[in-house]
Design a protein around this nucleic acid. Structure first.
Length: 248
DNA sequence: TTTACGGCTGACA
DNA sequence: GTGTCAGCCGTAA
């Protein structure tokens, strides 16, 4: 550490008591293996603040400083948050703490809703907007997710377009599909539903409709499965929405 | 304060 | 079925 400001922040005070201000104003940066290749991660005392694909030129740290106005130093051995490596290896594991305090209320709401989408399942942008309390802000949800500070940890790859197609992704659509496949999603089957215009899948024995990727939708036997092109069509047919995936 | 811009959607030709 | 377009809405410049 050569920055004089950082040295002063970490120095003992005149009264002799150590100041632990340093970790509160300076974040830690590290590289870690991710499901799509190496990633760079910035960690603060309250959790992971930023994550991006590795870039040898140092642009990730530069982008972080510019976006959040906070200095970054290399992390030490003990600075890797518990749960980070398993979460990056397998999206279904328990996540490390994530610090979204630099986000706006709307961004935090969108990211929090997104974080609750189960592994291997998809929810539409409009669904996220509704669950975040701003049903009309569908487009804005896309904007927030495009800037997701912690992709993979907040699984924005599990958000799809309303017609069932995958939509765009920070790391590319192919990466989105492969992440979902690794989580157990039937990507080809979901694409087939979307291609057929089927947005919802119901069971004629229960009268319940689900989003096609919902764990309950997968259990409907072929003989009793009925596809719908819209929530309105499903409701008109007397179906109610699944309480797990809440399609409408 | 204003404007432009998106990981979108639904309607309409 | 497939384009196109206007509308929507939070951000950043």
């Amino acid at each position: 550490m050569t920055d004089p400001l950082l040295e002063r922040l970490s120095a003992p005070t005149e009264s002799g008591s150590p100041v632990d201000l340093l970790p509160r104003v300076v974040d830690r940066w590290l590289r870690a293996p991710g499901p799509l290749g190496e990633v760079e991660v910035v960690v603060g005392v309250d959790g992971v603040r930023y994550l991006r694909p590795s870039d040898a030129s140092g642009s990730v740290r530069e982008e972080y400083r510019r976006r959040y106005g906070r200095p970054v130093v290399a992390a030490g051995e003990g600075d890797v948050p518990a749960g980070l490596l398993p979460a990056l290896r397998d999206g279904s594991r328990r996540r490390p703490p994530v610090d979204l305090s630099a986000c706006s209320d709307f961004e935090r709401a969108v990211l929090t809703v997104t974080a609750g989408i189960p592994a291997g399942e998809l929810r539409p942008y409009g669904w996220v907007a509704r669950e975040a309390g701003r049903p009309a802000a569908v487009r804005a949800v896309g904007t927030v997710l495009a800037r997701n500070p912690v992709p993979l940890l907040v699984p924005c790859h599990r958000v799809s377009r309303g017609d069932g197609t995958l939509g765009q992704y920070m790391f590319g659509t192919t990466a989105k599909a492969s992440l979902l496949a690794a989580e157990g999603a039937d990507v080809a089957g979901l694409a087939a539903h979307a291609g057929a215009g089927t947005v919802l899948v119901g069971s004629d024995t229960t009268g319940i409709v689900c989003l096609p990727s919902c764990r309950h939708a997968r259990r409907i036997t072929a003989a009793h499965r009925e596809g719908f092109r819209s929530a309105r069509a499903a409701a008109a047919a007397g179906y109610r929405g699944c309480r797990v995936c809440r399609p409408f």
